[in-house]
Write a protein that binds this DNA or RNA. Structure first.
Ligand SMILES: [Mn+2]
Ligand SMILES: [Mn+2]
Ligand SMILES: [Mn+2]
Ligand SMILES: [Mn+2]
Lengths: 230, 230
DNA sequence: AATAGTTTTTAGATTTGCCTAAAAATAAAT
DNA sequence: ATTTATTTTTAGGCAAATCTAAAAACTATT
């Protein structure tokens, strides 16, 4: 089956929304895609006839198994291109999203397999999100929200919850990126801000709002020699 | 100004056609783009209002200066992507045209500049065609048609006149590619076929039709030490 | 259970890009 | 100089993707 750019954008958006909610609603999707509910309904009908969706009028919708496969293919392309842009063309990781939003629609299976090989089969994109393999399988690293990290536990930043340029600007300013190892040394109940320390640098605090968008993989410090493992 | 994929394909096609003919006709363009004359007329009107064309009904048309600039930008993107696909992703040079046909429409000036830098500012694409620089300037290597190469003169294949897969299949079979150094050792007047030799390999013959699609840069063999220069 | 509020769908338009068939303009041939 | 043939444009229509406004269906509240 062949899909237009627009159909692909809808399928991918539904995929992301149903990760959180399972059942997706018309208005949710309209908001996500900056379009109107009426336009969404039109597309839902089309995607249903293409067997991409489970959808009954007024009842919400989810991707069919076939739809999920298509979605994972687009996500795969998006994240591989992002990896390419950052690691080969030296873009900043806060500059690549919108370009990948176009590149993900280039239709050529062999292109994406050769790109994957060229990049040495990366497992995560520059934002810490896992890259599905050719069969749609991807790492499910047990990452937790930074707000849930316990006091005095070391952890490695593994993903960010948004790609907004405002967020990425702030992270760059604070020198936090994917792979940064940090430790929470204090939590303030007044505003839920937390104080963290990176390496031997002076501690600094980050807001609850920022902590909520950061995901980390806890690191386990050996009791005997102090070495760090994941 | 912003252009749709369709508009860009038209502009680029007009650019290529007017290289040969100067004044381009509606039917020519329709054939080139596998579309109908009526569709071409529609697009001509649109491109004229966008000041891309000099066009009066029934009188043929050419690109305006602005149109040429846009065309060169698309050609630049097309050829840079082709170079990337062949020299980084290891595609065959006969497999890249249709993929580049899509990639050339990715809209991001900074992307193409970073790609150019990553590729070390190549001057020719995998088919021997010159790549315009950011200002639209490109090499005008004095290449001649293989049919015009004089007997017993060495020359380097620098371009092919078409990207048809039939042609490229034949070239691959005969082991001829961009950069191949050959020498014409005989010309047959009966069918205008010519006999050539590559390195120390056995000579073989190629048809007039094939010779017409090949362009070469003559090499000048030093009279004193036999060394080759361009 | 009836009413009010919200969400979703339908109805009807618009834009872009394409098509076929017919008309108009140009070019070629007698 | 007409007639004939070819090329190009116009007229009218269609499919995809969007929109606004109105109707229909669900949900929540009294
Ligand atoms: Mn996209
Ligand atoms: Mn990403
Ligand atoms: Mn193209
Ligand atoms: Mn080329």
């Amino acid at each position: 089956m062949n899909f237009s750019t627009s159909e692909e954008n809808y399928i991918k958006a539904i995929y992301h929304l149903q990760q959180a909610n399972n059942l997706v609603t018309t208005n949710e999707l309209a908001t996500e895609l900056n379009t109107k509910a009426a336009s969404v309904t039109d597309m839902l009908k089309k995607l249903k006839t293409k067997k991409m969706l489970h959808y009954e009028p007024y009842q919400g919708f989810t991707l069919s198994n076939e739809g999920k496969k298509v979605a994972l293919g687009i996500v795969r392309k998006h994240r591989l291109w992002e990896y390419f842009l950052v690691n080969k063309l030296e873009f900043g990781w806060d500059e690549v999203h919108s370009i990948a939003e176009e590149l993900e629609h280039i239709h050529s299976p062999v292109l994406i397999e050769k790109l994957d090989a060229y990049l040495s089969y990366p497992k995560f994109d520059p934002h810490g999100d896992p890259i599905p393999d050719i069969n749609g399988k991807m790492e499910t690293t047990k990452q937790i929200n930074l707000t849930d990290l316990e006091l005095n536990a070391k952890a490695e930043v593994s993903a960010v919850g948004s790609q907004s340029s405002e967020l990425l600007e702030l992270l760059r300013h604070k020198n936090i990126g994917i792979g940064t190892v940090l430790e929470v040394i204090r939590k303030f109940t007044f505003d839920n801000s937390i104080e963290i320390v990176i390496k031997k640098n002076p501690p600094f605090s980050i807001s609850h709002q920022l902590a909520q968008t950061l995901f980390v993989k806890p690191l386990y410090v050996s009791a005997t020699d102090g070495s760090i493992t994941k």
